[in-house]
Amino acid sequence: MKRRTVLGGMAAAAAGTLATPLRAAGDPLKVGFVYVGPIGDLGWTHEHDQGRLAVEAHYGDKVETFYQENVPEGADAERVLTQMCLSGAGLIFTTSFGYMDATLNVARKFPNVKFEHATGYKTAPNVATYSARFYEGRAVIGTIAGRMTKTNKVGYIASYPIPEVIRGINSAYIHARKVNPDVEFVVVWVYTWFDPAKEGDAAQALIDQGCDVVMQHTDSTAPQAVAKEAGNVMTFGQASDMSAYAPWPRVTSIIDNWAPYYIRRVGEVMDGTWQPAQTWEGIAEGMVKIGPMSERLPAEVRAEAEALIEAMRKKEYHPFTGPLNKQDGSPWLAEGEVADDGTLLGMNFYVEGLKGSIPS
């Protein structure tokens, strides 16, 4: 097994599409990973890197993986991707929504390289997309939050106002409100995926406003640390287990399980069956997992959460099932109606009961 963490120098480029070193028979498949944060964030990037390590463990010397961490979304990503291609990558995973256009731009220049873009929606002959139905996990933690809050105020640290994040807020709120009609959500937008200082400040601001439960759609453990210091504030692990903060304040977690998908797609490149698919999997497929639940949760709350997980595992329940209205009171889903994937993928509205507006 081979692994490199630092990218080599760029090769000369031909006009039009750029030349990529060809893999000789018997050579390992070079697989690159582009990360928006550090692999030690114990959140989003950490879990993607666990998937990379699983690829190495599964395929051994048949693969050579390499990665670049802390890559900003934008022009820097395009430079990193180009360098990876010129270094001989046959498959590249770009693991943040903001890499979408950079991925498409570089893919056009390197038609022989396969690209996989996480949480995006644009494809090409050599670009696939993949994402997890994180909103299923939000339904579970929303249920727990609604049952456990004593102040009826739940704080939510949101990253960017994109459909993925809006879906999560809506799902968590819908399920908190189902078990506690008096619950209120306070949303703070931090405009970052990973910035411990901003995340910690946001958590403190929510606690200062009376929130005794804090959720996050950001990647660091800073909110966990702030909540632990507060002592009476409950949190949930985001993207990975964050078990260092269990059994309190972290009472369970939403875990993004990328390893099976990465292993499968690497294998398809190797055997020539790879296609530019759009994959969106959840609890039923194992891409979304719920971490161990703290004994500090009452037995009846754990049982209610487990029943919800099991219903989604069996695909007997969908978190966006009517009757549901939009924030302005206009009808969205009728009794028993389930939201279609197209609407969810483009979700740009709050459901009824949420306060505040979505930033433009």
Rank of each mutant, 00 (worst) to 15 (best):
M1A: 13
T5C: 05
M10P: 00
L22Y: 07
D27H: 04
L29K: 08
V31L: 01
G37M: 05
P38D: 14
H48N: 14
Q50Y: 00
Y59D: 10
G60Q: 08
K62M: 13
F66H: 04
E69L: 06
E73A: 14
A75R: 13
D76T: 12
S87R: 11
G90M: 04
L91A: 09
G98Y: 05
N112T: 15
T119C: 03
P125V: 11
Y130I: 05
Y130D: 01
R138P: 01
I144P: 06
G146P: 05
R147A: 14
K150G: 13
P161L: 02
R167D: 10
H175V: 03
P181F: 06
W189M: 10
E199H: 07
D208H: 03
G210N: 12
C211W: 03
V213F: 10
V213W: 10
M215H: 12
K228P: 01
G231R: 10
M234T: 09
Q238G: 02
R250P: 00
W274G: 03
W280E: 06
A284R: 08
E285P: 02
L297T: 04
E300A: 15
Y317F: 15
S330F: 01
A339N: 02
D341H: 02
L345P: 00
L345S: 09
L345F: 13
N348W: 01
Y350M: 10
L354N: 07
P359D: 06
